[in-house]
Design a protein around this nucleic acid. Sequence first.
DNA 1: GTAGACATGTTAATAAAATCACAACAACAA
DNA 2: TTGTTGTTGTGATTTTATTAACATGTCTAC
Lengths: 213, 213
Amino acid sequence: MFIKNLPHKTVERLSQYRRALLMILSKDKTHVFSHEIAQMLHITPVQVRRDLMLIGYSGNLRKGYDIKELIELIGKIIDSERGQRVAVVGLGNLGKAFISYFKGKRSKLSMIAAFDVNPEKINRVFDGVPCYHINQMTEIIKQNNISIGIITVPAEQAPEIAEALVLSGIKGILNYTPKPLNVPAYVYLEEYDMITSLEKVAFFAKKNDERFK
Amino acid sequence: MFIKNLPHKTVERLSQYRRALLMILSKDKTHVFSHEIAQMLHITPVQVRRDLMLIGYSGNLRKGYDIKELIELIGKIIDSERGQRVAVVGLGNLGKAFISYFKGKRSKLSMIAAFDVNPEKINRVFDGVPCYHINQMTEIIKQNNISIGIITVPAEQAPEIAEALVLSGIKGILNYTPKPLNVPAYVYLEEYDMITSLEKVAFFAKKNDERFK
DNA sequence: GTAGACATGTTAATAAAATCACAACAACAA
DNA sequence: TTGTTGTTGTGATTTTATTAACATGTCTAC
């Protein structure tokens, strides 16, 4: 399903809507109102309705949105029909954390492999995900048609890893190192840096504190 | 130092500018141009200049910006003069990852404590940070005047932890669980969810792939 | 039926963020 | 002196994201 130019933020929220909806599916409810979704995610009902409008979904005026239908539609939009395979590069604490978080989330994304250089980790399975030596990365990525890579190695190594991923034919990279990466335009890159986030919190916490004093 | 209403994104970038600048301080350079900073972070030079304008810093027309001065000024703006103390709640893989990342970053933020319920972790020190039982959280937070909390516990427990943090007098929370939290307005809350990020990458990777084919 | 309560869907308005475009200026070379 | 180059600083514009406002529709109560 194709919808032209879905805003970045909307894509993020769709992912969250889906998860929230999956959580309430169990509770024998079949429909949900925009204000209920909004409350779960602490955003406004208008925001929810606008997002759903953008993906062309219409709810029932009296009953709200059909939960199952909506979950399915979101899937059609954000998931790739044939699924996408993911690998984590760097099986340190963060790599492990990611795999654990990921586990059990059924979806079109599957975590196929981890890569590391530590001999104690290689050829072992962590939380269902096998770990290989980084030397084998290109080979395994191509073999398994892995299209998304998550970088959780030490910062200095990030650029070479990124380059290798790109050469292996990866389509998207999620970079958790503080080192900004350079990738060609046909590879989608998302970067997140914990320290920046923390400093941001620190700044606004301080500011808030002054304001409310 | 007070500057009214610095945009969120600018605050994030200031943190990154500072880190980038600290990295090049060593290399006997004393000045830097906006396009150099921009290149390091993969943004535009205009963006850099605009941000610096917002914090009221003026460079030298011919030499660029004085690195030391700029680092200092950024510190004056985003750091709290008396420093801020941080605690991690949940010493699982993610909690550990955060502490490791944090280590060695000199700054006005200090990582004071971790909390967990696992007896094997309690009363031990991980990467220089002592771990206590969650029961002691309020007490230790107050004692040490900790003002920022990072939540890395399993999602179900996040709301109660958040509430406890707020009651303990925390001023800012960084929530890594997928559970959206509710906090009073005087507490600054930042949320980040790895799965959402991954799904976003997956979506745009897929889209990019179609577009460039 | 018809008024009231309460949803959705959407256009319009506003706010936040990024970019464009260019004036102003310093150093240098001819 | 005068042009050339390459920079900063910033008003104007554009783009992206959010919020307001309200028309429209459906059920319920009377």
